[in-house]
Amino acid sequence: MVLGTQKFQFNRLLEELDNLKKDGKITDEIIAQVGYSTYQVGSFPTFDFIEKDKFDQYIDQADIVICHGGTGVIVSALKKEKKVIAIPRKNEFNEHVDDHQKEIVSIFFDLGYIEEVDHISELIKAIRNVEQKEYKSFKSNNDIFVNELREDIIKLSNGEGK
């Protein structure tokens, strides 16, 4: 689980996962980067922050990435072809300054890349759904641009002008 590095807590997600793990509703291993959250987890290991190499290693090992609604973590997990459950931080819970993460998560969900959880009580349902569901393969715009550029260069080098 990844909660980002901004100076906001995401205690309600940590508490929900902790309770699901304690109740045996989640039996898989959970490791969480909790950032500035203050909730004390009792059922799985956590760390505040992590170096990029170690972060990438954890993502590589994960079957499912549960995260906040930041584009960085969502895109990183999708590029590694991981199933993603994203829960947007909400202003009403003092988790962010506004609700832009709701918009971000909704866009990725509507495009078929991730599972969205708007209400924390829906998390266990989302975990069950993501295990059974197939998602679209993600290609970043940079990858698309580079591939198109490469194809254009090959065409030009073969004398096939545009």
Rank of each mutant, 00 (worst) to 15 (best):
D60S: 04
G70K: 03
N91Q: 15
T46A: 08
Y36E: 07
I107E: 11
D99L: 02
D53S: 15
I31W: 09
K83P: 00
T46L: 03
K52C: 01
V117K: 00
N91C: 11
T38Q: 15
E92N: 12
D23M: 12
P45I: 10
A62I: 06
A62L: 05
L14F: 09
V97A: 15
A62N: 06
A77H: 03
D56A: 12
I74A: 01
L20S: 09
G35V: 03
K82L: 08
H119C: 03
F109E: 12
F44W: 10
F55R: 13
K102V: 15
K54L: 08
H100Q: 08
S121N: 11
F44G: 06
F44Q: 10
K21G: 10
F93S: 04
T27G: 05
D48Q: 15
K102P: 00
L14W: 05
K54G: 00
Q40F: 04
E51A: 12
Y58V: 01
D63F: 09
A32N: 05
F93E: 04
N91S: 15
G35R: 03
K82S: 13
I59E: 04
V75F: 04
A62F: 13
L111W: 05
L78V: 08
E95Y: 05
L14R: 05
D60G: 00
H96T: 10
Q61S: 14
V75W: 04
L111M: 15
G24I: 08
D28Q: 13
S43L: 01
A32L: 06
K52M: 08
I66R: 04
G112F: 09
K21L: 05
E51C: 02
V65N: 12
D28G: 13
F49E: 10
D63K: 11
D60L: 04
V73L: 04
F55C: 10
K21W: 03
D23R: 11
D98G: 10
I114Y: 01
K52L: 06
F109R: 12
K52R: 11
T71G: 03
L78C: 01
E51D: 15
H119Q: 11
I31A: 13
K79W: 07
L13M: 15
S37A: 10
V75I: 15
D98H: 08
Y36N: 10
Q40V: 14
K21T: 14
G42P: 01
I74D: 06
D99C: 03
L20D: 08
P45G: 04
D23L: 14
I120G: 07
K80G: 09
V41Q: 01
F47K: 14
D99Q: 13
E92T: 06
V41R: 06
V97F: 13
H100W: 00
K54H: 05
V84S: 09
V73A: 12
K22C: 10
S106A: 12
F55H: 15
F108I: 11
A77L: 07
V117P: 11
E103I: 15
I87P: 01
V75P: 02
G70S: 03
H119Y: 03
V105E: 10
I59Q: 07
I50D: 08
S37G: 06
Q61I: 04
V117F: 00
I59W: 09
K102M: 07
I66Q: 11
E81C: 02
E15D: 14
F108P: 14
A32I: 06
K21M: 12
Y58I: 10
I59H: 07
E15Y: 06
K102D: 03
K90R: 14
I85W: 13
